[in-house]
């Protein structure tokens, strides 16, 4: 099965992420799943969001295993602090992760503080998505059609 984000879901997620971005003064707010797929992104920095999703999911998955080793259910959040940039990862639900990238000018306390209500809102939206109609039964649905391109992946020209 695929995880499906309808247009109206994207709009709801965007609203929450934009508000979080403004309040926390972060550079980027990104939502990804535990498999490393990027679900939503808001922000202006030029980091590769797909790579951040893959690495973020990996880091958080590893920290979850560490938590289990220590007898915790999970570490609900992970913070990596650098001199100029920092990254804050927080579980939204069992399969989804909020990643916030922020600069030295932002306050880590505010990042943590404002992430709490945002995570609540995101959790509700994701729950609604999971209970929503399957793909094919919504206004966004059009049948998927495989491309007739002869090459699936285009190779570098010699």
């Amino acid at each position: 099965m695929a995880q499906v984000l309808q247009e109206k879901d994207s709009v709801r997620l965007r609203k929450v992420l934009l508000q979080l971005l403004a309040r926390s003064e972060s550079d980027d707010c990104l939502l990804c799943d535990s498999g490393g797929h990027m679900l939503a992104l808001e922000g202006a920095s030029r980091h590769d969001p797909f790579l951040i999703s893959a690495l973020g999911a990996g880091v958080f998955g590893a920290s979850r295993e560490l938590a289990r080793m220590l007898g915790e259910n999970e570490f609900s959040a992970v913070l990596h602090q650098g001199e100029r940039k920092s990254i804050f990862l927080r579980a939204v639900d069992a399969d989804t992760l909020l990643v916030m990238i922020f600069s030295q000018s932002a306050n880590v306390g505010l990042v943590k503080l404002y992430s709490t209500p945002a995570v609540e809102d995101l959790r509700q939206i994701l729950a609604d998505i999971k209970q929503g109609p399957p793909v094919g039964d919504t206004e966004d649905s059009r049948p998927f059609v495989l491309s007739t391109e002869t090459q699936l992946f285009s190779l570098r020209k010699e």
Partner: peptide, 9 residues
């Protein structure tokens, strides 16, 4: 699990 984003196509 594949992921479909209709807004971003």
């Amino acid at each position: 699990m594949s992921f479909v984003n209709f807004k971003k196509r």
